[in-house]
Design a protein around this nucleic acid. Structure first.
Lengths: 217, 217
DNA sequence: GGTCCAATCTAAACGGTGTTCAGAATCTAA
DNA sequence: TTAGATTCTGAACACCGTTTAGATTGGACC
């Protein structure tokens, strides 16, 4: 509030106990709620603190800074996404189908949890040097995808050779498709065609599988 | 600065003329320079104004708000990218090669102009309801890609049928690859493999072409 | 029980931000 | 030359992230 002469106005609502008890958790859930209702721009540390009925300085006992809080939220998103991807992978009948299922899962998740999506694909918002937990999650996701690609190649469901380009390509499709479907442009395109995003996503997934199998020979 | 009792400190450096003359342009270039040197977080309207030697209120005669300024910068990026994509398209020997070239161009551009890239793939930073010029550029880019895909299909270089899924997939690869290569994760992956991003991008592009042709039958 | 320490929270402050507004300075057209 | 529109200034308002000293509390040890 700057060098105001009079003090900051009342920043919190009164609470029965001096100690909050589970502030860290409530800060995270309040952030998610705020992103979901008013967009990521509405998430200020002060506002989150207000929402939790706590003074502006309190969050600093649980998070180093604003970025760390957003990081924690993003980490939660990564964990949930990885879980869903694993489930989709397990439910698929073949490695090729698993790849298609993972792409669709990626998009479905991003659309179902826009709050997470807005954070996860924008590392500069949850800077500085992602915490190790997030890093481990990302690593696990890449590994899951790499294993699936290898299985595809082994079963003749994908072009042979170095799996890295294939992994990168599929990863890009996931990230790009999720981003475009959350940010708007795809919405607009499907609407113009009298289609829907889930529909288009399914078609992209099917096409990808066709192309994988078709070029395996 | 809040309701400080004493006035804000000097916010601008003196200038010979009262009117700036080309403020709108200088605000845009100053923004680009700022993003390039200190990241997008460093771009505040006040700082840009200071950089241009102008008071904090002056930019509001040229841009409705901060988002509008960022939007103008992003529009410039879109225009430059479209131009490069068109050049790559024209230089390619076949429609399939053109698609590969466009993917590589997309990534190269994003890496060469991180300032633009940081804005272009994050519409929520340059909100509200993109101006018509930007919209037209995006539309032109989609059309260019769609035409190329149709040419591919006509020449037996891509699976036949509705071009929309193919367009969406390629678009996603471009956006995803560009995003991942700018934001870090790809950098890290290539480094671990003793490779580079341009190299990997080239491999992805080549793989995409192989898959397109291979699954055309 | 009491004592002491570490963790938590408050209140105030500092400097920064976006945005608005009245009024001064200047350009433009008549 | 004058009138009106444009551009810019300077001050103000309400926010923001972050730091700090000091109050309050929980838990461990006696």
């Amino acid at each position: 509030m700057g060098g105001d002469v009079k003090a900051d106005r009342l920043d919190r609502v009164s609470r029965a106990t001096y100690h909050h008890g589970a502030l860290r958790e409530e800060l995270i859930t309040a952030s998610i709620a705020l992103i979901e209702s008013d967009g990521i721009g509405a998430v200020s540390l002060r506002r989150v603190a207000r929402e939790a009925g706590v003074s502006p300085g309190a969050p600093y006992h649980h998070f180093e800074d604003r970025a760390a809080l957003l990081n924690a939220v993003a980490a939660r998103g990564y964990a949930a996404l990885l879980e869903e991807a694993r489930a989709a992978h397990a439910a698929a009948g073949s490695p090729v189908e698993a790849i298609g299922a993972m792409v669709e899962t990626y998009v479905r998740f991003s659309r179902a949890h826009p709050a997470y999506a807005q954070l996860m694909y924008r590392p500069e918002l949850s800077e500085p040097a992602k915490d190790p937990a997030t890093e481990a999650l990302a690593q696990a996701a890449i590994q899951l995808l790499t294993e699936t690609v290898l299985a595809c190649q082994a079963s003749g469901g994908a072009p042979a050779g170095d799996p890295a380009p294939l992994v990168t390509m599929i990863w890009s499709i996931c990230a790009g498709l999720a981003m475009l479907s959350v940010d708007g442009p795809l919405e607009q395109m499907t609407a113009a065609r009298g289609s829907t995003i889930p529909e288009l996503t399914g078609q992209v997934s099917a096409l990808l599988q066709v192309m994988l199998v078709g070029s395996a020979a």
